[in-house]
């Protein structure tokens, strides 16, 4: 359980990091907190020939930039908890981060790392998919923005190309009459979830306007639930049909059956978490109305 040989490089600037990643191609990986990459290397499941340490780059910070909330790739998980912008605009995000790991992981782990690692049931990929975030990646060729729903391709597989690295996430700011919620269940607190559901709602006149829903645990990456998003439109906040939504959604998925949980259980759990997440979001919407 020791990593294979690799060379370590400390990047002194973003351009330096991108040059190194360009030079190493498939063999190069940026490293920040190492909370996911280092265990993978110790198991020799990841064998990068070159690690580019980006910890000293100015890539942290949570700020509003025009119509988006921009979160730098090196922002550590513990920073979300007391951030007023996240609390104000993204209640589902704030719910979700409470399920992330333990204090050590929160102190070291970064949003860029979590997104790039793409564990199927990690919280931040689900949050990005829920909020239609753009994943901002850069390489020596320049910058491109990838929609979160197009970013996660499979378990631990993303749309990042060799030579690229995530530099930020951009979350479109929602209208003020909106809210959300996120619920996860895991076997132990701090574990990756068995399943999780995130909801965002826009509302007016006691009714749901637009809705978004994300689910982890139903597939190899977080998926949206367009059927439920449509189902919720026009529903009364006081009676959104949450249980029915849970049943409909659970019937539409085909979760894995493995030693951690049976497919039946995952389906049942997802139905129930869907109900609870919708009800929680509606309760918040009513409080805010």
């Amino acid at each position: 359980m020791r990593p294979a040989s690799f060379e370590y490089h400390r990047a002194t600037s973003l351009d330096h990091a991108l040059e190194l990643l360009h030079e190493f191609g498939e063999e190069g990986r940026p490293i920040a907190g190492g909370q996911s990459l280092v265990p993978m290397m110790n198991f020799r499941l990841a064998r990068p020939g070159h690690l580019v340490d980006i910890n000293r780059l100015p890539l942290g910070g949570i700020e509003i930039d025009g119509q988006v909330l921009r979160i730098g790739a090196l922002t550590r998980h513990e920073a979300y908890f007391n951030d007023p912008l996240i609390a104000r605009h993204f209640p589902a995000f704030l719910d979700a981060v409470h399920y992330i790991g333990h204090p050590t992981i929160r102190r070291n782990g970064s949003i860029g790392g979590s997104i790039s690692h793409a564990d199927p049931t990690a919280e931040l990929p689900a949050v990005a998919v829920l909020h239609d975030a753009d994943i901002v990646v850069r390489s020596v060729q320049g910058t491109r923005k990838i929609k979160a729903v197009e970013f996660f391709l499979s378990a631990y597989v993303t749309a990042i190309e060799p030579g690229e690295m995530v530099v930020a996430l951009e979350f479109p700011l929602p209208p003020s009459a909106s809210t959300g919620s996120f619920i996860e269940q895991s076997e132990r607190s701090g574990d990756f979830g068995t399943a999780s559901i995130g909801i965002t709602l826009q509302f007016a006149g006691g009714k749901i306007g637009k809705a978004a829903m994300v689910c982890s645990g139903a597939d190899l990456f977080p998926i949206r639930a367009p059927e439920i998003e449509e189902f919720l439109v026009g529903k009364a906040l006081a009676d959104p049909g949450a249980a029915e939504a849970g049943r409909i959604f659970a019937a539409s998925i085909d979760p894995v059956d493995d030693h951690i949980a049976s497919a039946d259980y995952r389906r049942g759990l997802i139905a129930e978490l869907t109900r609870r997440a919708i009800e929680a979001a509606c309760t918040r919407a009513l409080d805010k109305s």
Binding site: R188, G190, D191, H259
Partner: peptide, 26 residues
């Protein structure tokens, strides 16, 4: 929590602490 699991070919499935779950303080 704790369960050491083999598949039908006796391949172990719970070979690290992400799969072999020990009780934690919370």
């Amino acid at each position: 929590l704790e369960h050491f699991i083999y598949d039908s070919e006796c391949q172990p499935l719970t070979t690290n602490f992400a799969d072999y779950l020990m009780p934690l303080a919370p």
